[in-house]
């Protein structure tokens, strides 16, 4: 021993000798029995993690596609709804138009019928009045003449006179602008 304090312990043959043996044995033990399982474990975990990442990636992609699909579906549904609403609106409009038209026609018809009726009533009234007037005129003439007269002949004459009068009234009416 060069140095009795042991700080510069050279050469410590026993330590070097046992060191070589110990380290070689340690190296062999670690190399054969320790590192392979650790390495396998780490590699396996790495594989698992990579797999998980791949799977997650795939799932995310699927989810994104699904979302896209749903979005499209919603868009389509919305479009369809809009279309249906539009159609319904048009339908309603048409219905209303038709109903309005029907009502107008109905009203026109009623008015026309009423007008016809009135016309007919008036004509019958006029006819009655003329008969009455003719009768009264004939009666009056018989009383004045003191004898019976030919009712048919006179009736026709009176009717002609009345026609004339009527025509005059009508002419006067149209002239005065009603």
């Amino acid at each position: 021993m060069l140095d009795p304090t042991g700080i510069f312990d050279l050469p410590n043959t026993s330590l070097i000798f046992w060191e070589i043996i110990t380290f070689l044995i340690l190296l062999g033990l670690l190399y054969w029995f320790v590192y392979p399982p650790i390495r396998d474990q780490i590699q396996q975990r790495q594989r698992t993690i990579e797999q998980s990442i791949d799977e997650a990636e795939k799932t995310r992609k699927e989810a994104r596609e699904l979302l896209q699909e749903y979005r499209e579906q919603i868009k389509e549904a919305r479009e369809e709804g809009r279309q249906i609403r539009e159609e319904a609106r048009q339908e309603g409009e048409a219905q209303r138009e038709r109903a309005k038209k029907d009502a107008r026609e109905e009203a026109d018809r009623i008015v026309a019928r009423a007008r016809e009726e009135i016309q007919r009533e008036r004509e019958s009234a006029v006819r009655e009045v003329r008969q009455e007037v003719t009768g009264m005129v004939i009666q009056a003439s018989e009383q004045i003449l003191g004898r019976s007269i030919d009712r048919d002949e006179h009736g026709r004459l009176i009717s002609d006179a009345l026609d004339e009068l009527e025509a005059d009234v009508a002419a006067a009416g149209s002239r005065s602008g009603r």
Binding site: F8, D9, L10, N12, T13, L15, I16, E19, F23
Partner: peptide
């Protein structure tokens, strides 16, 4: 902290 030991390792 023993120089013999570290020299041995260095020899390896």
């Amino acid at each position: 902290s023993n120089i013999s030991f570290t020299l041995g390792l260095a020899a390896f």
